[in-house]
């Protein structure tokens, strides 16, 4: 026990500090990017249906720029899951187009999205992000199993390269595991997420689709993932952050897009907006009280 405090005498920050045992970076420094923002991913009027065949995305348009984090704020079930899947090739686009640096990706497979340099931290790590009965090694190359680095030819996997690579991820991203040869099923949730983040960030991606990247993590893990996201942004990646945690979105994003019933109803600057305005947009989609749309 480190100490007890009365609930009304403490605040989030203190509590978090006690739990982690040191200062937590909850307010983050955002370095300004020089020069005109360079659009990387262009999404134009995209429509898609959900698993039941109902229209979940009703014409979504936005640009994702280099060196920025675009946060998607919204109440769960307004099309966020479908948006992430459409942007990673996992769900077909019904109408509209997606392009990366002028490279047309509409109608392409997940493989093409990966090869184009789009990394993806999926919302459900047990289902999508990891093969639970694969070892760390095997999971570390998921998505890049055909990369020349790991498979010099289609008849040969370079086992040593895979081990070295996995060990690097484990080291750099602090995955706690007895060895890289154990099944990821046996890792804690936080370490599983670290492995996913490590894998996706080690690809040197141009775009990162991060869906609920900190869900289910302890505070140390959360902090770590957030730092990494910012670091990727600073290194030039374009990050789309989809999160149910409004505070997280506000804290990390350079711009905030609000999604409501399958549409982007507003894009806001976190400096000039507040929880109240975003909350209203998220709940009603109404622009009545919101300021002008920011592009």
């Amino acid at each position: 026990m480190i100490g007890t405090v009365r609930a009304d005498e403490t605040n989030e920050r203190e509590l978090a500090e006690m739990m982690v045992g040191r200062d937590v970076v909850f307010t983050v420094r955002r370095t300004e990017v020089k020069g005109a923002p360079e659009p990387v991913l262009k999404v134009v009027d995209v429509q898609a249906v959900d698993d039941r065949g109902l229209l979940a995305l009703k014409g979504v348009s936005f640009e994702l720029r280099k060196n920025e984090i675009l946060g998607i704020a919204g109440v769960q079930g307004n099309g966020q899951a479908e948006l992430a899947e459409v942007l990673t090739g996992l769900r077909p686009v019904k109408k509209g187009s997606i392009s990366l640096d002028g490279l047309e990706l509409t109608g392409k497979t997940a493989r093409d999205f990966i090869d184009a340099g789009i990394a993806h931290i999926p919302a459900d790590r047990h289902l999508r992000g990891l093969v639970m009965d694969f070892t760390l090694r095997e999971n570390a190359i998921l998505g890049r199993q055909r990369a020349h680095e790991f498979a010099p030819s289609c008849f040969w996997q370079d086992q040593r390269a895979i081990t070295r690579y996995t060990e690097r991820i484990v080291r750099e991203f602090g995955v706690k595991t007895p060895s890289v040869h154990v099944l990821v099923r046996n890792l804690s949730g936080g370490n599983q997420q670290r492995l996913i983040v490590g894998r996706e960030f080690s690809k040197g991606p141009r775009v990162i689709i991060a869906a609920q990247p900190t869900r289910g993590l302890d505070i140390g893990g959360m902090e770590y993932v957030r730092e990494q996201l910012l670091a990727m942004r600073d290194h030039g990646a374009a990050v789309l952050l989809i999160s149910m945690d409004l505070d997280e979105v506000m804290m990390l994003s350079d711009r905030i897009a609000v999604i409501y019933e399958g549409r982007i109803v507003a894009i806001k600057d976190p400096e000039t907006t507040d929880r109240r305005e975003l909350g209203e947009l998220m709940l009603s989609g109404s622009r009545a009280q919101a300021g002008g749309e920011m592009r």
């Binding site: 996992l90 493989r111 289902l127 093969v131 694969f134 055909r146």
Partner: peptide, 25 residues
């Protein structure tokens, strides 16, 4: 166990959603 194609096959067997995520048809 030693080729990328076999790796892909096994991932389909263990977790189709994850395999799909990994760009496997």
């Amino acid at each position: 166990f030693r080729t990328p194609a076999g790796y892909e096959l096994r991932s389909v067997g263990l977790s189709p959603p994850a395999a799909e995520y990994g760009g496997i048809r």
